[in-house]
């Protein structure tokens, strides 16, 4: 029967993930009128710049940027895009906190946002570990004690540059990207949280 087809079920599930017309709406509730809303999209935009500059760095290999002025500049772009990414993300997070944006059944939206932040911290941290310069030597030899003290170092060895590189360029970016997509879908599914104690008004 076509109604029990896995394909049909998946198609229906996707189709009903967000209300009709809300995946990419051209209108927003009238209360969405503040600069604070810009920081979510600024975070997404800077994440894209981080990915692109990181991919360009990857083209030259792990130590390319030490010997090439172009490579060093791309590394600078990568660094500053990460700084901007966190700057925007932290403001976005604080904005959502003061809006109590978890209201109205949006707990999971908040949780995925926090998890994205944590995964981003891990991704940036592994980036600092694979710089193959003095900073990475110092940071890794210091960080190992924290990781080892709670047993994490047994399988996540911050002084193993090869392991950290793979975490940095594959595993953690995939995690951040995946959770970000889930976060955005949840935002679109539930809509932007209304103001605290918002009164009903006529359209």
């Amino acid at each position: 029967m076509s109604t029990t087809s896995w394909t049909v079920r998946l198609r229906d599930r996707i189709a009903h993930t967000v209300p009709e017309g809300q995946a990419l709406p051209d209108r927003q509730p009238a209360y969405v009128a503040s600069w604070i809303y810009v920081f979510g999209v600024l975070t997404l935009a800077s994440f894209l710049v981080v990915l692109v500059t990181g991919c360009i760095l990857s083209l030259g290999g792990i130590e390319w940027w030490h010997t090439s002025s172009i490579g060093h500049y791309v590394n600078s772009l990568h660094l500053w895009s990460v700084e901007l990414f966190f700057f925007f993300m932290v403001i976005h997070l604080w904005g959502k906190f003061w809006m109590a944006a978890w209201r109205g059944g949006r707990t999971l939206t908040w949780v995925t946002g926090v998890v994205t932040f944590l995964a981003s911290v891990g991704t940036a941290f592994t980036g600092y570990l694979v710089q193959t310069n003095f900073d990475s030597q110092w940071i890794s030899t210091q960080a190992k004690d924290g990781m080892n003290s709670v047993g994490i170092g047994a399988f996540f060895n911050v002084t193993n540059t090869g392991q950290m590189l793979l975490f940095h360029v594959v595993l953690l970016p995939i995690a951040v990207g995946f959770i970000t997509v889930a976060h955005v879908i949840l935002v679109r599914r539930k809509g932007v949280v209304p103001p605290i104690d918002a009164k009903e008004v006529s359209a």
Binding site: R27, P29, Y31, K190, G191, A198, V201, S202, A203
Partner: peptide, 9 residues
């Protein structure tokens, strides 16, 4: 949120 009046965005 879907029952509030909207504006172009």
């Amino acid at each position: 949120s879907h029952i509030f009046p909207t504006r172009p965005y």
